[in-house]
């Protein structure tokens, strides 16, 4: 649905996006993560045919960037960084305006549908400027969806939403995924990216890492089991040298055991510990968050420059 090759964009001397190669499949929820100023919004603008690249090519929804920009804009929906609503128009009128610009066949019906979905139907006659920040964000999301785009770009969709509204948005993303819509999601909420995204890219002017959240974490940290013992004996690490154990460490009186296949190997490990007379209290998998990975990789990329 999205494919780019060497996409590059400069602002004067500043390179905002450098040599971006990306392929996003149809129906994929793709997370685009990176620190402030990384070039995420610039990438969205490039991919939604709002600004032109200085170098590189790309296709979006099967259409070529630069040649079929107008058709691309018809097929993609963009939730911009700020809601950008017409404050002097009513919520309903503002959405109708966009539905008509997108030539939606039955604009009033679509507007009603999305306003109801976001619980804003009762507010349709209120001026957009009178809504709370989170409600404005919901209207902006409705605006991005009103023409049923094949590709949806979301620039920090849940940034100003309360937990309930954020959940509505996340559920919506799940629904759109099942309807084979492609979603390009920029977010600073790493937990959200971890839960929602099929794959994530870590980006700071250029791609730093790319893969499913699980792959990325395992690739960097492997899988580890934490064992809490009541009275850990010294020297237990040495006694645990089983053939499949890659590494054993002792941290704060707990054992950290690196394993390739914990589902099969943990039972053997625990049996061995019991044989050695250890009193096992808890056995957990050590889980890394996407945040750990994010911070780690960014630090690495800074050090590399």
């Amino acid at each position: 649905m999205i494919a780019t090759e060497g996409l590059t964009r400069r602002f004067g001397d500043l390179v905002a996006v450098e040599n971006l190669d990306l392929v996003v499949a149809k129906g994929e929820v793709f997370g685009f993560l990176g620190p402030n100023g990384a070039g995420k919004t610039t990438t969205i603008r490039l991919l939604s045919a709002l600004i032109a690249p200085d170098a590189g090519t790309g296709t979006v929804a099967g259409l070529e960037l630069g040649r079929q920009n107008r058709a691309i804009r018809q097929r993609v929906g963009v939730l911009t960084e700020t809601p950008g609503l017409y404050k002097r128009l009513s919520v309903g009128d503002g959405l109708l305006f966009f539905a008509r610009l997108y030539s939606v066949p039955d604009p009033a019906r679509e507007v009603e549908r999305y306003l109801r979905l976001f619980d804003l139907w009762d507010r349709r006659r209120d001026l957009a400027g009178s809504l709370s920040k989170g409600m404005q964000q919901k209207v902006a999301i409705a605006r991005a969806l009103v023409h049923d785009p094949a590709v949806l770009f979301l620039d920090e969709p849940t940034a100003s939403l309360d937990p309930e509204a954020a959940k509505v948005v996340r559920d919506l993303i799940e629904t759109l995924r099942t309807k084979e819509r492609t979603i390009f999601l920029c977010t600073h909420n790493l937990d959200e990216a971890d839960r929602l995204c099929d794959r994530v890219a870590l980006f700071k002017r250029r791609l730093i890492a790319l893969g499913s959240p699980q792959e990325l974490k395992e690739g960097r940290y492997g899988r580890r089991t934490v064992v809490h013992l009541a009275h850990p004996r010294p020297g237990l690490e040495e006694a645990l040298r089983l053939p499949f154990v890659k590494k054993v460490e002792r941290v704060d009186g707990k054992l950290l055991v690196s394993l390739a296949d914990p589902e099969r190997q943990n039972p053997v490990l625990v049996r061995r510990l019991v044989e050695l007379g250890a009193e096992v209290q808890f056995v957990n998998e050590l889980r890394y968050s996407l945040e750990d990975l994010y911070l780690d990789l960014l630090e690495g990329s800074d050090a590399a420059h």
């Binding site: 107008r70 804009r73 950008g84 997108y102």
Partner: peptide, 14 residues
Amino acid sequence: EQGTLEPLLATPIS
């Protein structure tokens, strides 16, 4: 002032 240009320009309007 309202930051409405970007959503407007994202539509197929020429």
